[in-house]
């Protein structure tokens, strides 16, 4: 783990991984889409049940991406690895995009199923919205400070604060929800899922996980190469 913090070693280690990861992500996405589109329509929800195959993986990977961001921030803060900052940065944009996708697909599913695009009555919606806002705040802070290393450390502190605070927000939103609106629209103890839906769902979750890994590693590699490029340019300018 610590050996890979060396950018040189990370680049050598990750170079053969990038291609296969993208190919695996593409294959899994194709298979998942095929399975999702050929699954039988639900007896109650009809064809809109298929939105779940996009929505659930996006929501869970949005959360996982925050975990990746938070852990990267911890590494960046404690061991001051420049690679950890690149990792946090590379996780933030796909994480925000996945969370946004979860919110949008949730709204598209909610309109025919619940009759509304959005409801404040469901705690999960509100806590995912707060997660999305927190991603935006993190990205805004990371971009607002000019000095690169200072921006990295300030963002790392905020990432750690979020790692502690987001579960508290989640808990308090749940509590608020039970106070104001006891009957939730979604029930945790719904009917157990049949294999016809479980297989495409699990395939899509695997596809999103591999896709996130591919985007993440590519993002870190791009960042490292960008830094190298800046150093080379600076050196050439010095020599000229």
């Amino acid at each position: 783990m610590f050996g890979l913090a060396n950018p040189e070693r990370f680049m050598r280690f990750s170079a053969p991984l990038v291609g296969p990861l993208w190919i695996a992500a593409g294959l899994l996405l194709a298979a998942g889409s095929w399975l999702s589109l050929t699954a039988p329509p639900d007896y109650q929800q009809g064809d809109s049940v298929r939105i779940m195959f996009v929505h659930v993986p996006a929501a869970s990977m949005g959360l996982m991406a925050y975990a990746a961001l938070g852990v990267s921030c911890l590494f960046s803060l404690v061991w001051r690895h420049p690679l950890a900052d690149a990792a946090a940065r590379a996780a933030a944009v796909p994480g925000a995009a996945l969370t946004g996708l979860a919110l949008i697909t949730g709204a598209i599913w909610g309109k025919p199923m619940w009759g509304v695009w959005w409801t404040w009555g469901d705690a999960r919606l509100v806590s995912v919205l707060v997660l999305f806002l927190f991603y935006l705040a993190w990205l805004a802070l990371r971009a607002a400070i000019e000095d690169e290393s200072k921006a990295a450390r300030a963002a790392a502190v905020l990432g750690l604060v979020g790692l502690i605070n987001l579960p508290i927000v989640k808990f308090s939103v749940d509590w608020w929800n039970t106070l104001h609106q006891p009957a939730s629209l979604l029930r945790a103890d719904g009917p157990s899922m049949t294999a016809a839906y479980l297989t495409p769902l699990l395939t899509m979750m695997a596809a999103y996980a591999v896709l996130f890994a591919a985007v993440w590693i590519t993002g870190v590699r791009t960042e490292v190469m960008g830094r190298r490029l800046r150093t080379l340019r600076a050196r050439r300018a010095m020599e000229a």
């Binding site: 806002l133 927190f134 705040a137 607002a144 000019e146 000095d147 502190v157 927000v169 308090s172």
Partner: peptide, 29 residues
């Protein structure tokens, strides 16, 4: 956290407001 950034005031609000959710919930509650 937003020390040294160029858009201090707005940035403070954007960072602080998501973290204000628990006191708002429990206070109004």
């Amino acid at each position: 956290l937003s020390l040294g950034s160029k858009r201090g005031g707005l940035l403070v609000a954007v960072i602080a407001l998501p973290l204000y959710a628990p006191p708002v919930i429990f206070g109004a509650g």
